[in-house]
Amino acid sequence: MKKIFLLATLVLFLVPSVYANLLVTPTRVELDNKRDKSAVFSLVNKSSETSRYEIYLEDKRLLDSGEFELLESEVPSTSLTPFTRYSPRRVSLSPEQGTRVRLAVRPPKDIKSGEYRSYIVFHQIPLASTTESEASKPSDTMKLSVTAYLRIAIPVIMRVGQLTAELTIESNGLNIQDDKQQLIVEIVREGQRSSYGDVEVFDADTNELLGSLKNASIYTENERRSFAITLNEPLKPNTKLLVKYIENDGLFEAKTVEQTVNF
């Protein structure tokens, strides 16, 4: 019988069960061109097996749909990659073993005011192949191997100058999915910097929190983004909602915007 060897590789992007196999902190880095020019990432292998990771930088843009588009053919003018250094570039971690990755940004002195962003990627790669004796061992059975390779991308943002943003909540709507109500909140952004924060939905009369979304991001390439906020319970007729978007207080001139909506 002819020996057949089949290897199937499945790459998973940020699937929670797989993501938990590698603990990375921080999950977002914000720098400037004055004092905060470096960061240290802590990696811990939470899986039960030894894993190897390749570390590199990449550029991508966030689409209005919430998906990312990898920028491979050209380096955008807002990329950090040309003047960012990091070490090490490959690590192997035993179960529960940790290590650190150091990153430093060295922008040119004449860098223009604005927001710059790239992503540092921790990409799981196969360990060394089996020994030659194992690889050459005859077998008449079909072997199917499915390997989930983890890929985590952490945004690294550097802001040059005191950048501001203006935000408004423009429109809302209700969506019913899987017997749950979701409030669609659209946030409009203008200005020089990106924004991230929390969206909260309250009953305007009782001030009861009905739903929330943490770490909503709107980058400089986005003029607007829509977010689906799952509500804790179905809305009663004639309910008045208060929708708030609260920027992270680490942002320059962080803002809170709100809108009332009747249903």
Rank of each mutant, 00 (worst) to 15 (best):
T78K: 09
Y119Q: 05
P107A: 01
R117D: 00
G161A: 14
R52N: 11
L127V: 13
K143H: 11
G98I: 14
G173A: 12
Q181H: 01
R61A: 05
S171Q: 13
T84I: 05
L71P: 06
Q162S: 15
L174G: 04
I125N: 03
A104E: 15
I125Y: 07
V156R: 01
A128V: 11
L183V: 12
N172C: 11
K180T: 04
K60T: 10
E74T: 05
R90M: 12
L183P: 10
R106F: 06
T141W: 00
P138R: 01
T99D: 02
P95C: 10
L163P: 07
I169L: 15
V101R: 04
R100F: 15
S113L: 13
E134Q: 15
Y86D: 08
L63Y: 03
D110N: 15
Q162I: 03
I152R: 06
T84Y: 01
T131F: 10
G98E: 12
E72W: 01
S79R: 09
I169G: 08
M142V: 13
G161F: 14
E67A: 14
D64G: 15
N175L: 10
K109G: 09
Q177G: 02
S79Q: 06
T168L: 07
R106Q: 08
Y116R: 08
R151M: 10
E49C: 13
P155W: 12
Q182V: 12
S65N: 07
Y116A: 07
Y56L: 07
R102E: 08
E74L: 06
S133G: 14
A135K: 14
Y116Q: 08
L167W: 03
E72A: 01
V75F: 04
Y149H: 14
I152P: 05
R85L: 04
L163N: 09
R159G: 04
S73W: 04
A148H: 12
E132G: 01
E134M: 14
Y119L: 11
S129I: 12
S92V: 10
A165Y: 11
L174I: 09
A104G: 08
S136H: 08
V91L: 06
P82K: 11
D178Q: 15
E166A: 01
G66P: 07
V121T: 06
L174Q: 03
T84K: 01
M142Q: 03
L144H: 09
T84H: 02
E132D: 03
I157E: 13
E166Y: 00
L127D: 15
D179Y: 10
V160R: 13
M142T: 08
E49T: 15
S48G: 10
P108D: 12
K143Q: 12
I154N: 07
A153L: 05
R159W: 04
L93V: 01
I120V: 09
R102Y: 07
S77G: 12
P95E: 01
Q182D: 09
S51G: 05
K112W: 09
P108G: 11
P88G: 03
L71I: 13
Q177K: 14
L63P: 01
S118W: 06
T164F: 00
D110Y: 15
V105Y: 00
D59L: 02
V75L: 14
E74N: 05
L150P: 08
L62F: 12
S133C: 10
I125K: 05
Q177I: 06
K180Q: 07
A153G: 10
M158R: 04
T147E: 13
I125S: 06
I176A: 05
M142K: 03
V105H: 00
R89C: 04
E96P: 00
